[in-house]
Simulated scan of single mutants.
Amino acid sequence: MLAGDVDGILAAQTLAYPDFLLESAGFFQNRLALAPSHCWVADTAAPAGRDGLLGYLISYPWDAGLPPALDVALESLPAGADHWFLHDCAVVPRAQGLGVGQALVRAAAGSALEHGLRRASLVSLGSATGYWRRQGYAPMAVAGAGLAAKLAGYGPQAQYMARELPL
């Protein structure tokens, strides 16, 4: 992912998510600045004036504590992070069913392994929990009332999930 991809990412997320889940350009720029080797796009050569972005994936090293809040900039990543946090993976409708999301996840997970991360975690939207379970993710218990508050921002039936790497 490059800084120039952010406009395409903003357009893609509006096709993939309801308004309450949309994150700002500043959020994507923040994560790209903190973890450039963990942020990916899938695109295709497109005619002039047509966006070739097929999908994107935002991830970064994390400490397996509470998941980060939506659309909140981080000053830094946690020292000693041991998890790969898959924050967001979205595919535009015209590319769904082509394996774009799976290719993004595999590429990013490979990079996470190269960076020494051995577990993966994510917050699954309620509608995607079955997909992530089929990918080997299982609900993750995190003590405290803070988890429920964080998950509420992701919508009903959102779950914090984890699995071992490699995928």
Rank of each mutant, 00 (worst) to 15 (best):
A108H: 03
A3Y: 14
L10T: 04
P47N: 00
T14K: 12
M161Y: 09
A109Q: 06
L66K: 02
G55K: 00
P166Y: 11
V123Y: 06
E75H: 10
G101D: 09
Y60C: 12
G99P: 14
F28I: 11
V123A: 03
A158T: 04
A120K: 15
L2I: 07
Q13F: 09
H115L: 14
L165W: 14
G49R: 11
E23V: 13
G126M: 00
R31K: 13
A46T: 00
G97Y: 00
R50G: 00
A16Q: 13
A109I: 04
P166Q: 08
V100W: 15
P93C: 10
S24C: 02
H83F: 08
P47A: 11
L22Y: 04
L117T: 14
P36I: 06
I58Q: 01
P93L: 04
D19A: 10
G101Y: 04
G116I: 01
G52F: 03
L98Q: 12
P68C: 12
Q13I: 12
A120E: 15
R133Y: 07
T129W: 02
L122V: 11
R163L: 07
P156F: 01
V142M: 04
A148G: 07
S24Y: 01
A3F: 12
V72P: 01
V142I: 09
G52Y: 04
A158E: 00
Y160W: 02
L74M: 08
G80C: 00
Q96N: 01
V6L: 12
A148D: 09
P18D: 01
H115W: 02
A48W: 03
G52I: 03
C39P: 07
A112T: 11
R94L: 03
A120S: 15
C89D: 04
Y154Q: 05
R94Q: 11
L53P: 13
A143G: 09
H83P: 10
R31V: 03
Q96H: 00
S76K: 08
T14C: 14
A48M: 03
G110E: 15
A12N: 05
L167E: 15
Q102K: 13
L21Y: 01
A64G: 15
L74H: 06
V105T: 15
L151A: 00
R133N: 14
L34S: 07
G146W: 02
A12M: 08
R163N: 05
R118L: 15
G80D: 00
A16M: 11
D82T: 15
L74R: 07
D71I: 03
R94M: 08
V91I: 10
A12K: 07
P93D: 10
A11K: 14
D51L: 05
